[in-house]
Amino acid sequence: MKQKRRGLFPGLYLAVILILTYIPLLLVILYSFNASRISSVWGGFSLSWYQELFRDRSIFEALRNSIILAAASSTCAAAIGTLGAAGMARTICRFNGPVEYLSTLPIMIPEIILGMVFLVFFSLIGLPFGMTSLIIGHTVFCIPYVFTMVKARLAGMDKSYVEAARDLGAGDMRAFWDITFPLLRPAIVSGMLISFAMSMDDVIISMFLTNVNTNTLPIKIYTQLKTGVTPKTNALCALMFGFTLLLGLLSMWIGRPRKDRV
């Protein structure tokens, strides 16, 4: 009898967590097809709000800014995170632990604190707020995602491939580009996809670093919430959720464990 109770509790706990997490998301997606203008009142099934959404030029301008921002920050984070993880894997010293902790610190600091730090720092150095400040800020909190995935990949990689390349006369750079980098590519791409999704979804840091001429999609949604939620906002949130979910699944598929090949 005790064994049955122990076996029932984990499943019940998981069910409660899933219900509390996904029921609101499902309701947002459901009411994006609501024919009524009032989100809380169901008026029948309709695609009119998706049609209105695709006719809104300001939405697509904000979407374009978000895509540019996410692509630039995830690319910069991939370069910095990969080089940092590869350099730490080759260098063994007593400072590796503190450096690794500092490298992952941006994802542990509350976003509002990180945004205020960026605001003060960029104001002191005279950097104007806009796309440049957004790319720098997003790159900082995206680096840990690439760094941790590449570091985990390096820890499980067979070092004999690199040693064999060096025995055959390859230098450090040639061994890295011909051997190490192809093996790290799935982890790099997976980290970039996660970084892209995190950048697309960020609101708090973006609010501190943007200006009136540079509007991102999450900020656009946030400003719409102040004037009231309409089914058009639900349609936009449903599309963003689907896009983020697709990136997450793609990241898991690319980063899944595989047998090392040269």
Rank of each mutant, 00 (worst) to 15 (best):
N213Y: 15
I109S: 08
L236D: 02
G43P: 01
S133I: 02
I38A: 10
F176N: 07
L102P: 00
R174A: 15
F122R: 01
Y101M: 13
N34R: 06
L236G: 01
K226G: 05
P186E: 00
N34P: 03
L8H: 05
Y31T: 13
S74N: 09
F95I: 10
T21D: 04
C93E: 05
T21Q: 07
C237F: 10
N211G: 07
M192V: 02
D172W: 15
M198A: 04
T244M: 13
S48G: 11
A89E: 10
L184Q: 03
N234L: 11
I194V: 09
F95T: 01
R37Q: 14
F181R: 10
W49M: 01
M131R: 09
I107V: 15
L184Y: 05
N65M: 02
S206W: 10
L127W: 07
F60I: 07
F118D: 01
F141R: 10
T82R: 04
S32P: 07
V212S: 12
C76Q: 06
A71N: 03
A164T: 09
G7Q: 13
G255I: 08
R64V: 09
F196H: 07
G126L: 08
M207Q: 13
V140K: 10
I112F: 14
I109Y: 09
Y50S: 00
G191M: 08
L127C: 05
I205E: 10
D172V: 14
I67F: 13
V203H: 08
L127N: 06
I221H: 06
A78V: 01
L69Q: 02
I194G: 00
E163V: 12
I179F: 05
A152C: 11
P186W: 08
L27G: 06
I92A: 14
L105G: 00
G126D: 09
S73N: 06
I23E: 01
K2H: 08
P10R: 03
K259A: 15
L217Q: 10
F147Y: 14
L20H: 03
F129I: 03
P128M: 05
T21G: 03
A187N: 03
F243Y: 07
I109G: 08
G169D: 00
L83Q: 05
V28N: 01
W253L: 15
I221M: 14
F243E: 08
L14G: 11
R166L: 06
A238N: 01
H138V: 11
S32D: 09
M157F: 09
D201Q: 05
R90S: 13
M240D: 02
Y161I: 10
F60E: 01
I92N: 12
H138P: 02
I194S: 00
V146L: 12
E163F: 15
I194D: 00
Y161Q: 03
I143W: 07
T148W: 08
L245F: 09
D260Q: 12
D260V: 15
C142H: 11
A15T: 05
N96T: 14
I135M: 07
S251A: 14
L209H: 03
I219M: 15
D260I: 15
I136W: 00
L183T: 04
F181P: 06
A164R: 06
S36G: 13
L168H: 02
E52M: 14
K220N: 14
A86K: 11
A62H: 13
V120S: 14
L209R: 02
I19Y: 03
I29P: 04
A175E: 02
I125F: 08
L47M: 12
G97E: 08
F176C: 06
M116Y: 09
G87P: 00
W177E: 04
I19N: 00
